[in-house]
Amino acid sequence: MQEFLNWTVDTIREDRLISPWLEEKKFEWAPLVSKNITNILDKNYSVLIITDKDRDWFLSYILSNINSNKLNRPFLPFYDFSSFYKQIDSLKSEDDISNIQDMLKISFPNGYCFWYIGKSQDTRATLAKITKSSFLWVFDEERQGTINLKSNDDGLDMKLLQMFRLYNRTLSAALFAEINVES
């Protein structure tokens, strides 16, 4: 079983579809992905994906690929959060947030986490940013405990696709005990 950080670097270097820029983020990437995958595989958390409106295409891409039959692995609990709560763009009060959290605690008794991809100041980011276990890929804010990107980066879409590729490969490697994400 290979050590996670070394496996990440090797995978970035060997996968011709992942650019070297991601290796520069390895110390930011590894602990966040480790925590997220541990929540999914060891704690049985479900993952509720939220994106800003500009990244709705990416949400569709994730959901189309995360449980692809081509991966030859068990399906994992990834869901579009908007299928649970359509009014996400109108979150206004603490009562709204509290009611949603109560609903999610009932719906996911083993736990849940948000995976948010988008601009940090977007209304859709609110729930994910206040939930401790969230997996955040935020734009235009340097925030501790997140993957930080710039929305004006010309290569942003390609970077998102490369990050997803690495994340999905990491999920498979952890699921099949090729790596220990906690080491």
Results as ranks from 00 to 15, higher is better:
173 A>L: 06
112 Y>E: 08
31 P>A: 02
134 S>R: 02
11 T>N: 07
56 D>S: 12
71 L>Q: 10
62 I>V: 10
48 L>K: 01
96 D>M: 07
171 L>M: 15
50 I>D: 00
93 S>M: 03
163 M>P: 01
89 D>C: 06
178 E>Y: 10
157 D>R: 12
2 Q>S: 13
51 T>K: 01
161 L>E: 06
89 D>V: 08
180 N>Y: 05
31 P>K: 00
62 I>E: 00
40 I>C: 04
94 E>P: 07
47 V>R: 03
21 W>D: 12
179 I>E: 01
122 D>H: 05
54 D>Y: 13
174 A>D: 03
97 I>R: 11
135 F>L: 12
142 E>F: 10
158 M>C: 08
140 D>M: 04
82 S>T: 13
34 S>R: 02
41 L>F: 06
159 K>A: 07
92 K>H: 11
54 D>M: 13
54 D>N: 15
74 P>Q: 09
14 E>W: 08
70 K>S: 15
45 Y>C: 11
14 E>A: 15
121 Q>L: 09
102 D>Y: 15
89 D>W: 07
48 L>W: 03
134 S>W: 00
114 F>I: 06
146 T>L: 09
156 L>K: 04
21 W>I: 11
27 F>M: 13
49 I>P: 01
42 D>R: 13
88 I>G: 00
129 K>N: 13
69 N>I: 11
145 G>N: 06
110 N>I: 02
55 R>I: 02
143 R>F: 14
144 Q>K: 13
79 Y>T: 04
128 A>G: 05
89 D>Q: 11
168 N>A: 12
165 R>M: 10
29 W>A: 05
175 L>D: 08
162 Q>F: 09
145 G>I: 08
10 D>Y: 10
96 D>C: 04
46 S>A: 15
106 I>A: 10
124 R>Q: 09
168 N>R: 09
57 W>P: 02
41 L>Y: 01
77 P>H: 03
1 M>I: 10
11 T>V: 01
11 T>H: 08
35 K>C: 06
155 G>Y: 14
100 I>Y: 03
121 Q>I: 10
134 S>A: 09
164 F>T: 00
134 S>N: 02
109 P>C: 01
78 F>S: 08
29 W>M: 08
24 E>W: 10
